[in-house]
Simulated assay, not measured.
Amino acid sequence: MDGGNTIITEAPAALNVEKRDLAKHPAVQILLPIAFALAVLGLWEFLVDFYQVPKVILPSPLDIYARAVSAWPFLVQHAVPTGTEAAIGFMLATILGITLAVILAYSKWAYAALYPNVIFFQLIPKIALAPLFIVWLGIGSSSRLAFSMFIAFFPVVIATLTGLNSTPPDMLRLCKALTARSWQVFLSVRFPYALPHIFSGLKIAVTFAIIGVIVGEFITAQAGLGYLILFASSQAETALILASIGMLCVVGLVLYGVVAGLEKLILRKYGH
C-alpha cells in the first residue's frame, strides 16, 4: 500500500514539474502572448463590426492598421525625437541615480540627510511638476530631457540602494577578514549582488523616461509622438491617435528590450 501511495503521490508532482518546465519554454513564452494579443484583436474587430461602432469613437484594428500604413513616414519621423529624448533622459537618470545610491550606501550622513527627501519627492505626483520645468528651462528639448530624467531618476536610486544593502553580511565579514578595501568590496561583492535590483529599477525607469518625454511633448513640442497624438485629437482622427500610441509602444518595447538584453549579458558575466 505504501508503495502504491508513493507512486500516486509522485505522479501529480511530476506532472506539475513538467507543466512548469513547459511554461518556461522559449517558444511558449513567445507564442502564448502573441496568441492572446491576436485573440483580443480578433474580439475587438468582431465587436466593433457587430455593434457598428462609429470610427470616430473606436475604429477597428484593421482601420488602425490601414491608417498606420498610410501615415507610416510621419509616425517614424515623430518617433525619432521621442525615442532619442527618452533614451538620453534614461541614460542621465541611470548615471545620476546609481551615483547617488552609491553615496547613500557608503555615507551614513548622506543617507540621513538625503534619503528622506528622496522618498518625499518620490511621493509627489511628477506630472504636476512638468509646467515648472517649462518655466525654468523653456519650451525646447532641454525641458523635456530634464523632466524625463527627473521622473526616471527615483526608481534607479531606490532599486540600486536596495540592491547595495542586500549584500549578505557573511560576504562582507569575509571581505573584512581578508582585509579587502572598500572599492574592492564594492566591485567584487556589493555591486554584483545589487545587479538584479538595479536592472529591476532600470526596467521601470525606462518606461518612466518615455512618459516624461510624452508629457513634455503634450505641453510644448512641435514634433514627437506626443505632439502627433494631440494633433490627431484636434482633428478627431481616432485611428491616427491609436496608431501613434501603437508606435509609442514600439519605441517603448525597443528601449525596454535593450535594457533586458543588457541585463542578460551582464548577469551572465557575473554568474547570476
Rank of each mutant, 00 (worst) to 15 (best):
G3Y: 08
N16L: 11
K24H: 09
A37D: 13
L47I: 14
V48R: 11
P59M: 00
P61N: 02
I64M: 07
A68G: 09
A71V: 06
L75S: 02
H78I: 00
T82M: 02
A86T: 15
M91S: 14
A93Y: 03
I98C: 09
V102I: 15
A113E: 01
I119C: 13
I119A: 14
I124A: 02
K126F: 05
K126M: 03
A128Q: 09
L129N: 04
A130M: 15
P131H: 06
F133E: 05
W136P: 15
W136R: 12
G140Y: 12
L145D: 04
A146N: 03
A146Q: 03
S148I: 06
I151G: 09
F154L: 09
T160A: 04
L161H: 03
T162Y: 08
T162D: 14
R173Y: 07
A177T: 10
A180S: 10
L187C: 14
R190L: 03
R190Q: 11
F191R: 00
A194D: 08
A194R: 01
L195D: 01
K203R: 12
V206K: 05
T207K: 08
T207G: 11
I210G: 04
I210T: 01
V215G: 00
I219L: 14
T220A: 15
A221L: 05
A223V: 10
L225E: 02
L225M: 03
T238K: 06
A239D: 04
L248C: 03
L253M: 13
Y256K: 10
E263K: 05
K264P: 06
